[in-house]
Design a protein around this nucleic acid. Structure first.
Lengths: 197, 197
DNA sequence: GTCTATAATGCGATAGAC
DNA sequence: GTCTATCGCATTATAGAC
């Protein structure tokens, strides 16, 4: 199950899928990078789809672990900004996310359901958090559902913008500042952090 | 050049590329939809890449024409919201945009340069407009470059969110409201419209 | 202009030896 | 567990007839 070989293959696959997308990536390319043959890869992951799903799980696990390791100072806006910065320090994650999301748009890809559910649950979690904290309407004047959608859209958009045209230092602060405005003044004392990307 | 056949092929290709992405789409599928064979398509467009570029040009042309047809009431925020709504009424455009953008992320696709330049020029145009109108700092407290990037990211993110999880009526108003907050209070009297998507 | 025919490649997956 | 060999399929693109 957790053999070292498996991990090596997963890491190689992360790079390849990030660099070429799901359709563009070939098992051969993954195998070559991992130092074995296509059939060796297929021994661990019975199909290309299963390989992709394993990558998505890995990405989510590592991302969660990273955020869990931060001090829980409750600065929720800063946490989200850090999540964005984290992905920028690990471009493969960001690229896999972006490419998979786009292929989910197309609808018939293996990860379509995964992406859809994730989008829903993130909005729900954030909306619930905002409602609990501020009631129906935030200091900025936006309603909680609108603000939740706007914040997540902002993050997603910044994400892609960065991938297309990287200026590393710029984007995390854009997220932080814009989010602060979207939620409203004096949000820096926000409470517990909700589930996140 | 502007033969009717060519237009038919372009329209068919728009649908197919939108539905399956660049890599996922085959010339055969385009040909079938247009009512001829693969070779017939290749007669008009010498390669798959050229076909994609032609689609991007078509999309941009139609989008511009639509916006130009609106009354220039100067409500710039409403214009941008309308641009989003327009794409939602023409899902193929939105999907082609999304898919091509993702494949541009991968970097080696034919449209990579196109997307990169577009991202830059849109930010510059919007930033310039905001600066001219409000100076370095907007009523919301954001600087012009940050606000420009945030607004465009928001639009891009909403775009994709909608593609993944459509609730048609919701998103245009999210764009309008969030943008209004990002720019600052009383932005409804904005001046001329800059170039847009 | 549009077709048939074909070349040439690349891919995912399976079967079976070691 | 990893390999060789192979099947079967889909794809882009070209050559040339009509």
């Amino acid at each position: 199950m957790g053999s070292a070989r498996r991990e090596e293959i997963l890491e190689a696959a992360l790079e390849v899928f990030a660099a070429r997308g799901f359709r563009g990536a070939s098992i051969d390319a993954v195998a070559e990078r991992a130092g074995l043959t296509r059939q060796g890869v297929l021994h661990y992951f019975p199909s290309k789809k299963r390989l992709l799903l394993a990558i998505l799980e890995l990405r989510e696990r590592l991302s969660r672990e990273h955020l869990a390791a931060r001090p829980a100072d409750g600065d929720w806006a800063a946490d989200l900004a850090e999540a964005v910065a984290f992905e920028q320090r690990h471009p493969s994650f960001a690229q896999v996310h972006s490419v998979v999301l786009a292929e989910a748009v197309v609808g018939q890809e293996p990860a379509a359901q995964y992406v859809r559910e994730r989008c829903r649950s993130l909005q729900d979690a954030l909306c619930g958090y905002l409602t609990e904290r501020h009631g129906e309407r935030l200091p900025s004047g936006l309603s909680a559902p609108v603000a939740a959608a706007a914040v997540l859209a902002l993050i997603e958009g910044v994400h892609q913008m960065w991938l297309v045209d990287p200026e590393a230092e710029r984007y995390p602060s854009i997220v932080r500042e814009a989010m602060s405005v979207l939620l409203g003044s004096g949000d820096k004392d926000a409470g517990l952090s909700p589930e996140r990307r």
